[in-house]
């Protein structure tokens, strides 16, 4: 509050007769400064505008949160192994070829799990390097 008044006093001493137009100009300049500051703040706010959930809960904008990523990866490996193991076990019972098909399918399941994790990692890296890395 004391800043502008001091400024005006100072200006009044310097150019006493042309005070009214100078004052007007000063108010104009001050307003323009204020508008500029508002503009900067608006711009800053606009950058975050499409972040409806803020930074913390906004996975749609940025890549997956670490926790979501961890869940995706771990479940991917376990489920691929489990499903392939089950298919092998079931086919073994069907064809009466006990452990062999299950062994083959477990290896295959391991491959599937690794492949899926590799893909998740690749997509995440793409997203990390250039905005939207998806194709």
């Amino acid at each position: 509050m004391s800043g502008p008044r001091k400024d005006r006093d100072h200006a009044g001493k310097q150019e006493a007769d042309s005070a009214p137009p100078d004052d007007e100009q000063r108010v104009f300049l001050q307003e323009r400064e204020a508008l500029k500051a508002l503009d900067a703040r608006l711009k800053k706010a606009r950058e975050h505008e499409s972040d409806p959930f803020g930074d913390r809960l906004n996975p749609a904008r940025r890549p997956d949160s670490a926790q979501a990523m961890a869940w995706r990866i771990s479940v991917e490996i376990v489920v691929a192994l489990g499903v392939c193991g089950f298919i092998g076990w079931w086919l073994d019972k069907w064809f009466d070829t006990k452990p062999w098909l299950m062994v083959v399918f477990l290896l295959l399941g391991f491959g599937v799990g690794i492949r899926n994790v590799y893909r998740i990692g690749r997509d995440a890296m793409d997203e990390g390097t250039d905005g939207d890395g998806r194709e």
Binding site: W71, V75, V83, G111, V112, R115
Partner: peptide, 25 residues
């Protein structure tokens, strides 16, 4: 020869991993 079966299986594993993830959590 190796990758196509892997891709096919990983496609059919999708609904299972999708449902297991939510239910297990």
């Amino acid at each position: 020869i190796i990758l196509v079966p892997i891709e096919v299986i990983s496609y059919f594993v999708r609904p299972i991993s999708l449902s297991v993830r939510l239910f297990a959590n």
